[in-house]
Simulated assay, not measured.
Amino acid sequence: MVAAGAPAVFHYTQLEVETKPGIHIVDITPQIRAEVERLSVAEGFVNVLSRHTTTAIAINEAEERLLDDIRQFLHRLAPPTAPYLHNDLHYREAPPNWPGGWEAWAAQEPQNAHSHLLSIVLGNSETVPITGGKLALGTWQSIMLVELDGARQRTVGVQIVGQGAPADS
């Protein structure tokens, strides 16, 4: 419970995460936990949003062998080599005014429909309560950025809303 007069907190920040090729799972819990502590939020919530269409946010156990199982499962669910309409670049148009025209656009456009599909299945955001100044995660739970199309520099939005500790009188 937060005392009357505790300051309201509405804070948005972005985490920059460097990912590795293929499916790469990054535990971002320490950065989020540090931001909650830095802001002295006692009660509230944090919303975590992937800002990309080929990444996801998930809550699960960050144990290495389980992470390998997750990668293998996702590869079976949406194999990168399966035929996908999104990957038929010859049927797609380049964005208007793309420098160099269609050929330049097609040369840089990845064939990554599998990554988009996995992102839809996994989801792009998670919300975690904050209580007693701590993330209300279970013992083995971590907040993870799931890269589905790496390696890239990725951005994760973190919105923290709540009440801080009471101001000193």
Rank of each mutant, 00 (worst) to 15 (best):
A4G: 13
V9F: 04
F10G: 08
H11C: 10
T13H: 01
Q14V: 12
Q14S: 13
E16V: 12
E16P: 01
V17M: 09
G22M: 01
I25V: 12
V26E: 12
V26C: 09
T29F: 03
P30W: 10
Q31P: 00
R33E: 12
R33P: 00
R33M: 04
V36A: 03
E37G: 08
E43Y: 10
E43R: 14
V46A: 14
N47Q: 13
V48Y: 03
V48L: 02
H52Q: 08
H52K: 07
H52E: 02
T54G: 05
T54P: 10
T55I: 04
A56M: 05
I57M: 05
A58I: 02
I59V: 15
I59H: 07
A62S: 15
E64I: 14
L66D: 07
L67I: 13
F73A: 15
R76W: 11
R76S: 13
R76I: 10
P79Y: 10
P79R: 14
P80C: 03
T81L: 09
T81V: 07
T81P: 02
A82S: 12
P83H: 14
P83K: 13
P83G: 05
P83W: 08
Y84I: 01
Y84F: 04
H86R: 04
L89C: 02
H90Y: 13
E93T: 03
A94H: 02
P95I: 01
P99F: 03
P99R: 07
G100T: 06
G101E: 09
G101N: 06
E103P: 01
A106R: 15
Q111W: 00
Q111P: 05
A113Y: 00
A113T: 01
H114M: 05
S115D: 02
L117N: 00
S119K: 01
L122M: 07
L122C: 04
N124L: 09
S125E: 14
S125A: 11
V128P: 02
P129R: 01
I130R: 12
L137C: 09
G138F: 00
M144S: 10
V146S: 04
D149N: 14
Q153R: 14
T155W: 06
V156Y: 01
G157K: 05
I160C: 00
G164M: 04
P166M: 09
S169K: 11
